[in-house]
């Protein structure tokens, strides 16, 4: 029996919306050619930016004490039969602030895959395609961010915003996500 918990692919999008890294770890997704990946990255970048700005209006100042983190969730279910994604683990909204900090799309779910997006403070986005049954995708994607910080950003031969061709990053991500 094939395990239903699968990490399909990892994409990294730089802050300008360009695709800088893509790698498939398990078969299952429809094969896209490299041009489609670039379009996907650019499109997602745009949608993500819009999703950050269509944040619901902040509650009136009298009710700031109500602890309601759901005002900052932007998870958009794409298919109607799909169950709504679970509430995001991070309560990103600080109720005392005037304009709450918004994360944009954090996850996007369909009947056969879930896309988890993590945006670093510098605007680099990590997109993780998993099966919907895969647990702890936010932990997995953060670990990928850590590896990116270690092996890509600390590598003196990597130039910023350029495609990631870093041997140790490949090895680390492969060791973490490829199932033997």
């Amino acid at each position: 029996m094939i395990s239903t918990r699968v990490v399909f692919a990892l994409l990294i999008i730089n802050k300008a919306g360009g695709l800088i890294y893509t790698r498939t770890f398990a078969p299952g997704l429809q094969r896209l050619d490299s041009n489609d990946y670039l379009i996907l990255a650019g499109t997602f970048h745009g949608i993500h930016a819009i999703s950050r700005s269509i944040n619901p209006a902040p509650p009136p100042p009298s009710s700031t004490t109500t602890n309601n983190p759901s005002s900052s969730t932007n998870s958009l279910p794409t298919h109607t039969p799909a169950p709504p994604p679970p509430a995001p683990s991070s309560t990103a909204g600080n109720p005392t602030r005037k304009r709450p900090h918004t994360t944009g799309i954090e996850s996007l779910e369909s009947s056969h895959f879930r896309l988890t997006c993590f945006q670093s403070p510098t605007g680099v986005k990590f997109l993780l395609f998993t099966s919907p049954e895969q647990p702890n995708t936010d932990v997995v994607v953060r670990r990928c961010y850590e590896m990116y910080g270690d092996y890509v950003m600390k590598n003196p031969f990597y130039s910023l915003e350029m495609p990631v061709r870093v041997e140790k990053f490949e090895r680390a991500v492969g060791g973490y996500l490829v199932r033997p």
């Binding site: 270690d150 092996y151 590598n155 003196p156 031969f157 061709r165 870093v166 041997e167 140790k168 990053f169």
Partner: peptide, 14 residues
């Protein structure tokens, strides 16, 4: 630890 050598200068060892 964190250094990966690009292919075109694979001889370099820091």
């Amino acid at each position: 630890t964190y250094i990966s050598i690009p292919r075109e200068m694979s001889q370099l060892n820091c």
